[in-house]
Nucleic acid binder design. Sequence first.
DNA 1: GACAAAATTGTAAGCGCTTACACTTTTGGC
DNA 2: GCCAAAAGTGTAAGCGCTTACAATTTTGTC
Lengths: 339, 339
Amino acid sequence: MVRTHRVTIQDVAVLSGLSICTVSRALRNLPNVSEKAQRQVAEAANKLGYKASAAASRLAGGSTGSVAIIAPTATAWFFAQAVEAAEEVFGDSGYDTVLVSLRNKTSVRKQVFGDLERLAQRVDGLLLLNVDLDPEEVEALEASGLPVASVGMRNVPWDNVGIDDEHAAWQATQHLLGLGHWDLAVLSSNEHSVATETPRFHGFRRALDEHHLTVHPDLVVAAGPSIDDGRRAMTELITRGARPTAVFAHCDEAAFGALMALREHGLSVPKNVSVIGIDDHPMSWFLGLSTVAQPVADQGAFAANLLCERLLNTDPPNPPSNHLLDTKLIERKTTRHKR
Amino acid sequence: MVRTHRVTIQDVAVLSGLSICTVSRALRNLPNVSEKAQRQVAEAANKLGYKASAAASRLAGGSTGSVAIIAPTATAWFFAQAVEAAEEVFGDSGYDTVLVSLRNKTSVRKQVFGDLERLAQRVDGLLLLNVDLDPEEVEALEASGLPVASVGMRNVPWDNVGIDDEHAAWQATQHLLGLGHWDLAVLSSNEHSVATETPRFHGFRRALDEHHLTVHPDLVVAAGPSIDDGRRAMTELITRGARPTAVFAHCDEAAFGALMALREHGLSVPKNVSVIGIDDHPMSWFLGLSTVAQPVADQGAFAANLLCERLLNTDPPNPPSNHLLDTKLIERKTTRHKR
DNA sequence: GACAAAATTGTAAGCGCTTACACTTTTGGC
DNA sequence: GCCAAAAGTGTAAGCGCTTACAATTTTGTC
């Protein structure tokens, strides 16, 4: 069966005996279409295997059938998981997924948020993963008119799904403190690239506060969500002469890196130093890494679903919702009571 | 500066004092445009900040400004790395990246390759990552007219970048054999979902052949590119009563899983069992995993560049090229001479 | 210089869809 | 039954671009 000519809405109109306009409305489930017409159109479209042209639809003011996922990086474990989970949801809802990795580069970031019109032209909605937005960017997003949903963000004027990052960090830190450690180092980030790092740092600080301890600036070091970054950060700490008895890493991958650096410098875990992360990466169990577990794919899928709902629901613009999923402290072998 | 109306090609035409048609040609660097016109158009477009509408362009028969990356999964380390590297190249060339994860599901796969027309409608080109295509799918791809490039595939009628998978597997296996092991297990795949697994299995077998050994069916077990799969596969092997003295895993993540399973069953590595993988994952160094290193991001970026070239170059359709990058055996602590 | 060929530019017809608006039919109340 | 309101349908004008093809200008040759 060779078809030389693309099946257009016109063909469906002819076959169904209705006008193009009615077909268009029927296909999009708009009101003012009789059940009979609806049925005829569905039948004709189905028989013809009609698929609307995204380009034409878009050009005429309709939807693009795509959504974009914006993430600080696409390689880190968390993001790869969340992206795939979201992509699945989008795919099942008929949307193509455009992946935009900011690659932790200011230039890319400026390019993306500086020209949201371009994106708005090409996608129907945006899913932001842990993007640490500044107020101007939030405003630009609002101005773009694009429906947005996010994972791991705070105080944003759209649907969000995440964990209580501050609490998760508090749990981890509290665990360390409970073991008698007070010289705590943090592998965090001052670059504001990953949104979850700020609340996690706050959670860390709050736990210290509660024990009447203060954050020692020399024990704070930046690390992105990667093994290499964690390793580099921990190495810097050690090289600098810092000798914390415990380390809180903002994610498991950074913690892995820390474990590496510690071992490279002859420090044994947990004998000399305790280490804890957040995530519960599949490697963590094997390495005995204590951590705070969070559901990752769930967050991506959940947020993607929220976005899809907004995209489909035309009528009642519900107020933005914020959903926090549970986290759980998992004690393993990298944390131990201070001797 | 509020702009109420989208800058169209019309605006550029007016400002440059030329016709829409000439502007369109100039913007796309088509022939038959005087240098003067070219300059005027560039200037006007620049001043106006003109960006062509992808939808309009596409509808009229032009390009979409997007490419799709198709991968068996998006979560495995290899794929996350390759995807991000490719996405960067595409982004720098002005293309949006549509991510399509097959999620190792036949249904998704059929859906994607069964309706390439849909994709052809929405993207200008395709980058396939280790997709183990059957002949019909290759044919469908050819029929779609979409420019294609790939990573890790064999005998395909388009540009490909990869490593010599058979050789890499041979290197790994040879290493094991050289250490005196002859009861070798393989964590491979019979599902034909990841393209590199077949040649790797062949490489494994060839090494055995050369030592006049044969592959023992009981020591072959399927495992996708994930820690969980590796763990499950190794557990199955052990539960089944198999007692190989060495294990070759088709990728490092599967090897990690194998290490876990071995430890869970009280088998120590490398004392009781040697383990080797392929990849050189960032964790491998830390775990002391012997492996065959391959450049991953390079492959993704390289293939993406090849695709971009095809997309841009209008004139000479060069014959498809195949590029093999080097691999290197890295001996670490999970492999040891058989006692 | 004249003239054909080559190079450049413009005209206008779509691409396939959405949507304002006009038109026709149905519905419901009295 | 009558009539206004409501519901359903159709007409036609774009959306912003590409591309035959026609029109114009430039180039090259003798």
